[in-house]
Design a protein around this nucleic acid. Sequence first.
DNA 1: CAGTATCCAGAGTGATACTG
DNA 2: CAGTATCACTCTGGATACTG
Lengths: 137, 137
Amino acid sequence: MSQEGTVPSSGHRAVTPPPDVFSSSCPTRRLLDRVADKWTVLVLTTLDRQPMRFNALRRRIEGVSQKMLSQTLRQLERDGLVTRTVTPTLPVSVTYALTPLGGTLVQALQAMIDWAEDHMAQVADAQAVYDRRLAAP
Amino acid sequence: MSQEGTVPSSGHRAVTPPPDVFSSSCPTRRLLDRVADKWTVLVLTTLDRQPMRFNALRRRIEGVSQKMLSQTLRQLERDGLVTRTVTPTLPVSVTYALTPLGGTLVQALQAMIDWAEDHMAQVADAQAVYDRRLAAP
DNA sequence: CAGTATCCAGAGTGATACTG
DNA sequence: CAGTATCACTCTGGATACTG
């Protein structure tokens, strides 16, 4: 049989190791770092509803700084998850939109947000119990 | 009909505002911050396969520091997502396991990991295109 | 083994100012 | 409007050392 995933000892082609986020050297790990990020999640799920301009995003995502927003957007653009479209009005308008690739990710991210909103109460209860244990030992 | 989500003007009971991760003051936002975290994602999905001891987790999740691992675990324990079980061997063994609540979250997190591993190539391509544009303008 | 304590570099934030 | 640049500050995260 084949030896997928083992060290190639006699193969002719270079074998790419299987992707593994648990390996710190795997590129997917860096990708996960970025995807599993507060601002990334909020930006992408916002753009899922509709394309948006910079300051609209800034207003919608409370608490994000200009710096982090533009940094996040540039990163997402580089990763091919959002597009940046410049319209030469006066002054210029810049619109950000999800790419099809970005769209495939949003499904998973939205599930995370839904989970947080749906289970907030249970988590809060657990926290209360935990904190009470510490207070009265 | 009802006015769910609007300001209560004549109701008798105090109305909790609807959860909204986009509001920086909403508790779900802090919850999202923690859930949308690199180490949280890796710890929870690891524990999904089987309960594990501290150093086993440390070895499995390459690159995590002791500090971040214990910090993450304590936080997850407080949130009711993992349990911490101490067995009085010599020296003592501590085993971490997913709670049912934690199990409900793992579904969403695993989807994120799967996405990263499945779309790594497309992202890498997009990055190459982006970087080439900057290099040859 | 399973942590806690300490120190330190760097990331993230806010404010402010400046460009096209 | 849509940014970039800079400074000051905080806070996270990593490396290291020590404890029950």
